[in-house]
Design a protein around this nucleic acid. Structure first.
Lengths: 356, 356
DNA sequence: TTGTATGCGTTATCAT
DNA sequence: ATGATAACGCATACAA
């Protein structure tokens, strides 16, 4: 045994510094083959209890931890996934929470991949997956021109969260945007509103287009018409919401209610309304979409549509795992949204509000 | 060429499915050694231009990408770091933004490691680093009982962000909490406040203790005393802030101003004040700490202390990279904070406000 | 039940 | 400038 140890050390060069023990160190120290060590950790039932205990004891004593890198190479899997987001926002943060939870349950780690609004970067993350930097990819962005050019053979396990994607190869976990918006509109209509504006996100996003469709449909269903100037496009931030209100106030006919494509736009709209001397909801009803957690402190409480962000992330990751396990025909999922009525919606004003 | 390719395939088992080409496939296809292929990508200047071009062309055509896993194993580095957070919050999100930026610049990826308030989990992430799942670790939590027990030999490259840590081995990038708080107190004192309360975060965090120390010191310096019941501890959330105000309103003597350990507490405090019929800032001045981005939409604008979150993350990651590169004596950093005066602070009320 | 030997896809050392 | 080949640390098929 000592001989073998000697040989081993000579062959592999003496370690003077204390680097973590490898499986071979364990093997040498215990006089067992590396295979046995490996088996104790991977399939304990395959090894005799006494041997197993002896190995386990040594593992604990010497602090042996299998090298994740080597393991990954041998097993041909990284147990890593990329979570690609277009921009760091509280919304994706909460989706990520669900992703992380599922990942933990399944023994995966999540790499946050921030595309910084650059589709080109999304492609880079794809390349990384192809290069075995990760096993799969979770997308939260609908437009990825380059990645679509990927040949099917190298299309890695992919699940799209929160955003629809028009590629049949992608599995989608999202909400029914059109339906969600319709619910909001229905709420406003029920309150008696007839003049409803729509503040939308950037129209290159498929989800935004879906919402717009839902809005128009719901309005049409209610027999209401939407002047083109009442559909104002912006980014998903408060500034855009505020600007949209300024825009809407310029017109001769003014809406009594606005639906905003997300909560941040809605909050901006409320601020904009205040700036224009409009009270919410007395003069203007505002309804958002997201039910962002951090807005719980906001006053007046924002009427909005809840998107199950955590659940979306969780389900998406679970599906991705199945994908990576080689399962075929993993289906997508459409989660239900829910209208949360708080204080920013009310009956329309009796007489048109006067803006300043 | 076909022959060689054939040999390769026979030797390595026929691939019926199209798996990504390996360096050996390239080698075979080009009639060059694997070493040359490798060199072209790693040190192009070492190879003759003609050969180089030939290889590059083939790389592009065949879509060859070095397997990151194998690369990592051979180079003995993962180019991955863990970013450990106690809980998913907008605060850490912005720190993460900086971390990510620096990581990208340095060719690293960031794994989001959510400890979910469980120090035990922090230990797990440490183990993963020891097991070469990542090269280094970024901590945002001050209390890690178990990890401290790690022998110095296996103490991986570590940088602590945002939170001080009392381990000499750790490199810290944070702010001077005591000084930040002192600035806030000084502002209130200058406005004429004499009765100032402190709503604190959980006292197990070292930063919270530092802030408390800063508060007491600043008050003492101003010749003001702090009744023990005016220091109310809570979690870092709005609910705690609201509860703290309820607590403070129960006393006979009431403060005219409160300093909250973070913005969320402050926002909760404001809400609590409203509930108790106190107007902010007329009856009660409130000042927070963080300058959270999402609170920009909050009205009235919160007076607070700006913490350079992005910069903290960025600098921390840059330092971690140096650490991982083996650099010794990488120093810590203390970033400057800045008082942002908005609308929630004003002069103390002439007569004590009446609570309901 | 345990051991032997080979493969995983690179990098890097040492020849040539 | 290029090639042969030994690491890297583990998993696993096959042998014993």
């Amino acid at each position: 045994m000592n001989e073998r140890l000697g040989v081993s050390q000579k062959k592999r060069g003496a370690r003077t510094t204390t680097s973590p023990p490898t499986i071979r160190d364990m093997s040498a120290a215990l006089g067992l083959s590396v295979a046995t060590i490996s088996r104790v950790l991977a399939r304990p039932e395959m090894v005799r209890p006494e041997t197993r205990e002896r190995v386990l004891k040594a593992v604990k004593e010497m602090g042996y931890r299998p090298n994740a890198l080597a393991q990954a190479l041998a097993r041909n899997e990284t147990r890593l996934v990329f979570f690609v987001i277009p921009v760091l926002s509280p919304f994706f943060l909460e989706v990520m929470d669900g992703v992380e939870m599922a990942a933990q349950e399944e023994g995966y780690s999540v790499v946050l991949a921030n595309a910084r609004r650059d589709p080109q970067r999304t492609k880079l993350f794809y390349d990384q997956v192809v290069a075995q930097r990760a096993d799969g990819i979770l997308l939260t962005t609908g437009h990825l021109p380059d990645a679509l050019a990927l040949p099917s053979a190298t299309w890695p396990p992919t699940v799209v969260v929160a955003e629809p994607l028009n590629d049949p190869r992608a599995i989608m976990v999202c909400i029914d945007h059109a339906e969600a918006v319709a619910t909001a509109v229905a709420h406003l209509v029920k309150l008696g509103h007839k003049r409803i504006a729509h503040i939308t996100g950037p129209s290159r996003a498929l989800s935004v287009r879906e919402r717009r469709r839902g809005f128009n449909q719901a309005m049409a269903d209610a027999g209401l018409r939407v002047p083109p100037e009442w559909v104002v496009e912006g980014l998903f931030d408060p500034e855009s919401g505020e600007a949209a209100i300024a825009q809407l106030c310029k017109g001769r006919m003014k809406p009594t209610a606005v639906f905003a494509d997300n909560d941040e736009l809605a909050v901006g709209a409320i601020r904009g309304a205040h700036r224009h001397g409009l009270k919410v909801p007395e003069d203007l009803s505002v309804i958002g979409l997201d039910n962002q957690r951090f807005l719980e402190v906001f006053e007046p409480g924002l009427t909005t549509i809840d998107i199950p962000r955590f659940e979306m992330g969780y389900q998406a990751m679970k599906r991705l795992v199945r994908c990576m396990a080689g399962e075929k025909n993993v289906g997508g999922l459409r989660l239900r949204t829910e209208l949360i009525v708080r204080q920013t919606t009310s009956y329309p004003p009796k007489s048109p509000a006067r803006t300043r």
